[in-house]
Simulated scan of single mutants.
Amino acid sequence: MSIEMYQVDAFTKEAFKGNPAIVCILEKELGDEMMQAIACEMNLSETAFIIQERNNDKKNNKFKIRWFTPNREVSLCGHATLAASEVLFNQLNIPFNEIVYVSKSGILRAHKDVYGISLDFPLDSAINIEFERFNGLLNAMGISNYRNIFYGRETKKLVIHLESVKEILEVSPDFELMTRLDIDDIKGVGITAYSGEDHDIITRYFNPWAGVNEDSVTGSVHTLLASYWSKILIKSELRAYQASKRGGEMVLRIKENKRVEMIGQAKTILKGRLHI
């Protein structure tokens, strides 16, 4: 079997910045074990598998999409969806202005925007939780002062609101200690603060439980950050920067129907075929 594949740097316009993802274009369905094995072999934070749906043997703009980290499947991944859209729009030149993805998080849409490629995702909502429960996590991350801790109702992601950009940049987690904590209902943890310079907010994101100590740029956590920060800053459009080693940025645009447009650029740096 031979599979067409691409490596794309997402949420950046420069090579070797943003968050790299593998995009596999499937001609037929693969089993879960095979997709997991491929993702493990690729060893990036996410590998996306897409297959075009057909109506009466005619191709259309609807694609099934699934995302795998090196050790598990995830229900939503923003940067790998942006990478898939870059491949479909700009490498394969599909004759459609919109892509409709069928995923485990429901229907997702992508279209070209003045800022790059826009992804239409469900907007998550922040709910408050008992701070004391996460004292062990805070200690493992070296965090002693914070403004707030909140939890994503849908994404199950935990986010810690810190005081400043300086504090965001200085956080140095003990990832081994984090993985030993009994917090199975947490699907990754982010830290965020107001930026106020070229961007409205700054973020970092960690998920050692999924084999990704620090993610370069994380789309899914921004569905939660968009709803949280839009209420604080009273803005429906936000510029966000994820301060990982590679760095990446996006525009978040709140929509009325509990959706959010996540807009960014992407650059394909490698294409080829995977032989199995």
Rank of each mutant, 00 (worst) to 15 (best):
Y151D: 07
G152H: 01
G152K: 01
R153H: 13
R153G: 05
E154Y: 14
T155S: 13
K156T: 06
K157H: 03
K157M: 15
I160Y: 02
L162M: 08
V165D: 06
E167H: 00
V171A: 10
P173W: 10
P173T: 07
P173M: 05
D174C: 07
F175P: 13
F175V: 13
E176D: 15
L177P: 00
M178Q: 10
R180I: 08
L181Q: 13
I183Q: 09
I186P: 09
G190D: 02
I191D: 04
T192S: 15
A193W: 02
D198L: 09
H199P: 00
D200W: 08
R204D: 05
Y205W: 12
N207T: 09
P208E: 06
W209A: 05
A210N: 11
E214D: 04
S216H: 07
T218E: 05
V221I: 15
H222G: 05
T223Q: 02
A226T: 15
S227C: 02
Y228S: 02
W229R: 00
S230M: 12
K231A: 12
K231H: 13
I234W: 12
K235M: 09
L238F: 11
R239F: 12
R239S: 13
Q242N: 01
K245G: 11
R246L: 15
G248N: 00
V251R: 11
L252F: 08
I254Q: 09
I254R: 12
